[in-house]
């Protein structure tokens, strides 16, 4: 899929662990892991909103379109 999830990059920039983010955005570790590893098929606006809020970033910082 040409949509790349840069969640790990933003987490590293904010020096935030997966556990910390999980507790802040109210998502399970397994769901965050699915998102982080790029296995997710879709993301809800509400999830994106809470991640952006927790990481203090824009949706574009997390999602990227990369043409092969």
């Amino acid at each position: 899929m040409p949509i790349v999830v840069n969640l790990d990059v933003m987490m590293a920039k904010r020096k935030m662990s997966l556990n910390e983010l999980s507790s802040k955005v109210d998502l399970t570790l397994s769901n965050l892991s699915v998102l982080k590893t790029g296995k997710a098929k879709a993301i809800r606006f509400s999830t994106l909103e809470s991640i952006c809020k927790a990481l203090d970033c824009q949706p574009g910082d997390i999602l990227e379109y990369r043409d092969k």
């Binding site: 965050l32 699915v34 296995k39 997710a40 098929k41 879709a42 993301i43 809800r44 999830t47």
Partner: peptide, 8 residues
């Protein structure tokens, strides 16, 4: 169903 399961 697979899409639904992989919607975060």
């Amino acid at each position: 169903q697979s899409e639904h399961e992989l919607t975060i």
